[in-house]
């Protein structure tokens, strides 16, 4: 029992590692702030493409989205990281992770937004168009706000998944939270930094998890 506490809950080690882990958390947050808007934007474009009038485009979008939903994100990260140099791109690992997780998360955001768009009755678009709004205007002002509201809990959940997914970046040496924690662990031969990282993930994500639960209850109530 004492050995377990010594191995995982050594406060002294934690205190030492804390500044490093804080830096790591900074990178994790940076990735989140970068990937969430990027993922949402590409996800929306793909969702709209999924219902495009042009059949070929629709097909292509579906293949793209299903492909990236089917690939494990870790595999995607390694492929992107190792393939980019062959394309003559000297990209830092951070860039490779952003690209890989962008491809992955946007595919999921796409599916959620597609469901959201589908949940808005066709009469909404028709009413807006009948007053002279263009398709893009009607989407922005009438359809999208309702679509997003209808799938807000799912968007929030997916964003949480995205944050958790950034820990995969440690495998190619991006100095995000988990990577910093494993580095610290191998220096001090003690797993307490990992415990601390877990606590920091929780501190960062628990409010969002609770928010998602609240959104979900509100949706069911509505």
């Amino acid at each position: 029992m004492n050995a377990l506490i010594e191995q995982f809950f050594n406060l002294e080690v934690m205190a030492q590692a804390f500044p490093f882990l804080l830096k790591g958390l900074g990178v994790t947050i940076l990735l989140t702030l970068l990937l969430t808007p990027l993922g949402l934007a590409l996800g929306l474009a793909l969702a709209l493409g999924s219902s495009a009038r042009h059949r070929g485009l629709r097909r292509a979008v579906r293949i793209w989205v299903n492909g990236f939903r089917g690939l494990p994100p870790l595999v995607l990260i390694i492929i992107v990281y190792s393939a980019l140099p062959f394309l003559g791109l000297r990209t830092p690992p951070l860039m490779a992770v952003v690209i890989a997780l962008w491809l992955n998360s946007s595919a999921y955001y796409c599916e959620i937004l597609r469901a959201g768009l589908g949940s808005v009755p066709a009469g909404q678009m028709e009413a807006a168009r009948a007053t002279g709004l263009g398709r893009a205007q009607a989407l922005r002002d009438v359809v999208l706000p309702q679509a997003v509201r209808n799938v807000l809990p799912d968007l929030a959940s997916n964003t949480i998944e995205l944050v958790k997914g950034t820990s995969l970046a440690s495998i190619i040496g991006v100095s995000e939270l988990l990577h910093m924690a494993s580095n610290a662990r191998s220096v001090v031969y003690n797993a307490s930094p990992i415990t601390l990282a877990a606590l920091m993930y929780l501190a960062f994500l628990l409010p969002s998890v609770r928010l998602t639960g609240w959104l979900e209850r509100r949706r069911r109530g509505a």
């Binding site: 009469g123 909404q124 028709e126 002279g132 009438v142 509201r149």
Partner: peptide, 16 residues
């Protein structure tokens, strides 16, 4: 379309 008003059976007001 601004000069052709349309009213629907289900109203189709914007709920938000």
């Amino acid at each position: 379309r601004q000069r052709i008003g349309m009213v629907f059976q289900g109203f189709n007001l914007y709920p938000h």
